[in-house]
């Protein structure tokens, strides 16, 4: 298990859980980041928000918020 901000560019996986403040949960859920959904990290550079593709949407999410999102990375992808 990893946090979303630890997933390297080009890797993909599945969201396991979303923690953190309630309003963060509500906002991140509304744009499609929910447990079980598949994602791929498009860009993950230090000091920049994480860019990910999820539910055919390109999304930028704050790095520190990404630490609240637990994911399972698919190997050999």
């Amino acid at each position: 298990m990893k946090k979303l901000n630890e997933v390297k560019s080009g890797k993909s996986g599945t969201i396991l859980s979303v923690d953190g403040r309630v309003d963060f949960q509500r906002r991140i859920t509304a744009v499609g980041v929910t447990p079980g959904s598949r994602f791929s990290v498009v860009r993950n550079e230090a000091k920049y928000p994480v860019l990910l593709k999820i539910r055919s949407t390109l999304l930028a999410v704050d790095r520190s918020d990404c630490a609240e999102i637990a994911v399972e990375v698919t190997e050999n992808d």
């Binding site: 309003d23 963060f24 928000p49 390109l58 704050d62 520190s64």
Partner: peptide, 13 residues
């Protein structure tokens, strides 16, 4: 506190 939210933004096509 609740205004200091991080970025959650769609990059539209």
């Amino acid at each position: 506190e609740s205004d200091r939210t991080g970025l959650i933004m769609e990059l539209p096509p």
